[in-house]
Design a protein around this nucleic acid. Structure first.
Lengths: 267, 267
DNA sequence: TAAATCAGGGTTGTATGATAACACCACAAG
DNA sequence: CTTGTGGTGTTATCATACAACCCTGATTTA
């Protein structure tokens, strides 16, 4: 239990701790939407930090759309759960079902991106994809260069959709997926895999070049199914319902934070 | 002196202005990944603000995963484009093409969500959707209660996919779309629209209840096409052929949305 | 009486200076 | 060649002060 706290503690900034603490108050309902937060001075004394730190924490929460403040009045918890940012909990992704869900979401976006790319791609897009493929051919399977070229290929496909949000979302999801795979680090490499993976990419590119919408979708689906196999995610589209993610609330109290802070500030 | 900010603009906080200014420097490549930012003092003097404001801006950028700082060394632009959060610029959404792109992205997710819901829904999901529909029937078209029930229906569909990320992403995108529509505020209301919209929802629900994957997709596609019309995202029925663009970044047309949504049917 | 005005306290926004903690580098000592 | 050992620069935090602003309530005015 305390070990978990230590891990949370790795964010060495006091403002981070204060922000998470306030955030937790909101998440657990002790601060309801519309409520007014204590004054900055009160928060500062409560947490045992300077008002400056509290302000940085509030600036962060404000940028995340959780609270809203006005000069002369105070800070308030934002009314509707209206997050202006989308975050993915890194630790939750370590669980297999969460990872599978994210992989599924990525698949949806990738397949549709391939479809759009098949009708909207420019010559520049095609050359970018071709260059990325060349980079993969030149690099050993699984190497950093190989991974970079792989990412670059998918980025080029997303770019070819002419929809910036597609690239933004897909890049975000893919990055989370990639991190999770790297963290697991249990993928085996072989020359066969290199050839197979390369072939999958080539089929995607040729379908996109030909403007073949369904072919591009199919090729991308095949590629993702293959990728799922290669990272250990067997079976594709079963109707097996995955357990919804449970949220674990770790009880961290202010007193503890205050104590830690005080210990640090003692002089 | 590479960074420059105009005179003090009233309105948002100074830290917000500084943060977006630095963010722009990164986006436009004047600050490359791995680069070290100027010192806080230097930034303070170049922007003409106090170091405190600079620190709040940096705290915000750090929470967004754009930069990374360490005591005694400095602040650096994060290496890989590895944002831990996904944000959508509110101002960019005011532009019609951005809105169309986001609406297109939402369509992809909604249609696939309907497909998954058709195979994975539980009884509880179906009753939740039914309740949301009842709420829409009971409320006048366009009222707050109506909108809430509408949102609730789509949320229930996302929930039925048994994929938490689907709900998270879809909720995020839908919320941005909704905000943008409210900001524009140019939608007309009529009883006909209420009946039509309700009918669209009912078809979605019945297809999901029947476990009809393609039917659910089609019904959701129809609903989104109708919603696009009602929001003013239409371009008549001029179906130009899906000629692959040879030029870079041709202006986005709405016909693309139509065809794109339709193109998802092809499987 | 009713409305407008104004003074006061409270809160956030910003500025300023100081100190502590830490990283980096050069240089001397062994 | 390795190891300390300072010095310097940077971030992290603290403390204080003032400006801008909101709210309330009393006071003045029509």
């Amino acid at each position: 239990m305390t070990l978990k706290l230590d891990k949370v503690n790795r964010g060495p900034h006091l403002s981070t701790l204060v922000a998470s603490s306030i955030s937790r108050e909101i998440a657990q309902g002790r601060l309801k939407p519309g409520d007014q937060l204590p004054t900055e001075q009160a928060l500062a004394t409560t947490f045992g930090v300077s008002r400056n730190v509290v302000r940085e924490a509030i600036a962060r929460l404000r940028s995340e759309g959780r609270i809203w403040s006005q000069q002369g009045r105070g800070a308030f918890v934002v009314e509707s759960n209206n997050p202006t940012v989308l975050t993915i909990d890194y630790e939750a992704l370590q669980r297999a079902d969460s990872f599978r869900n994210l992989f599924e979401l990525r698949g949806i976006l990738e397949v549709q991106a391939a479809a759009f790319a098949a009708t909207r791609r420019t010559e520049a897009d095609l050359t970018a994809m071709g260059d990325a493929l060349a980079g993969m051919r030149a690099a050993p399977y699984g190497s950093v260069a190989w991974l970079r070229s792989d990412l670059e290929f998918h980025r080029a496909v997303a770019e070819a959709t002419r929809n910036g949000y597609m690239g933004q979302f897909l890049g975000f999801v893919s990055e989370r997926v990639r991190e999770s795979i790297l963290a697991a680090g249990n993928q085996q490499k072989s020359d066969d895999m290199a050839r197979i993976t390369l072939g999958e990419h080539e089929r995607i590119l040729s379908a996109i070049r030909a403007g073949d919408v369904e072919g591009a979708q199919a090729a991308m689906r095949d590629h993702l199914a293959g990728a799922a196999l290669r990272v250990g995610l067997h079976d594709g589209e079963t109707a097996e319902p995955a357990a919804p993610a449970k949220e674990v609330a770790s009880p961290v109290r202010h007193s503890r934070l205050r104590k830690a802070v005080r210990g640090q500030a003692a002089r």
